[in-house]
Amino acid sequence: MSTAFLFPGQGSQEVGMLRAVPTQYIERIKKITGYQLEDLPENYEDTVFIQLALLVKGLSALAAVQRNEIRPDLVAGHSLGAFCAAVACKAITFDDAVRIVYQRAVLMKAAYPTGYAMGVIVGLTRTEVAQVVQDTFDEMHPVYLSNENCPLQHTISGEITGLQKTLAAAKLRQARTAKLLKVPVPSHCRLMQATVAALTPFINQITFHPTICPYLKNTDGRMTQDTEVIRQDLLENIAQPVQWNQMMDVAKEMGMNLTLEFPPGNTLTKLIHAKFGERSIRTINIDQHGVDDATFLYQKWR
């Protein structure tokens, strides 16, 4: 038996999701960063708000789960979720995660304040999406192939009119779905390379600690407990595709047969079902079940 903690990234946020977060976490964020998280619809256009809100949503649930003696054998987070995963395996502290994410989000927003985003294409293989991206590429409106979520679900990142053109072309090539995501920055492609450089000195000051379990890397799907490798992964994942598909393959090969998806949403649980079917891995979704029922299911299945 092997339990994986899974943390979602940008795109999973929903207006109102901070209502259930205890106020001490919101205050803690304010104290560390000076940023006041306010759950207002207009804030959901701002990557700084979205990233801090997702972080606090995931980490407050993590604390509740930890109080119930639930321990991971593996942790994996998608993009921003990787910071929650790093906290879950104890590589970094809550406060340091907040510091890095705030810095990361501010730099990302400054680099692309408007006009850039991400899209998702479902129903085409990676090779097919790469072809669409290549065929529709326009230097004035650059678009790059980014995350691999499962064999038939990939994201693209870039300038918004370029994205629309590529998504339309994907539809013509029989993609089941091709649409923009709720991500107001072009993450996980080379457009973020300067941001990585800017974040480097900051992340290098952070103290990393020995992990309690393996961490799955966004950038190449490898499993590691090496804290320097985790530091690099957290730094570089903004400018590289998230290899979620490969991460889940490795988790399965490591014996993962129970997953806990942390809030918000159920994107990662759906990806598990799409990839492995609904029977081979038991999934617990904290947003759906709540921490107490999730704990009950965990104890029953574990």
């Binding site: 190449d220 799907g221 490969q246 090969e253 490591m254």
Partner: peptide, 13 residues
């Protein structure tokens, strides 16, 4: 078959 992704990674690395 049951470990094919890790095998690929470890040979590549």
């Amino acid at each position: 078959g049951a470990q094919s992704v890790r095998v690929s990674q470890m040979i590549e690395d």
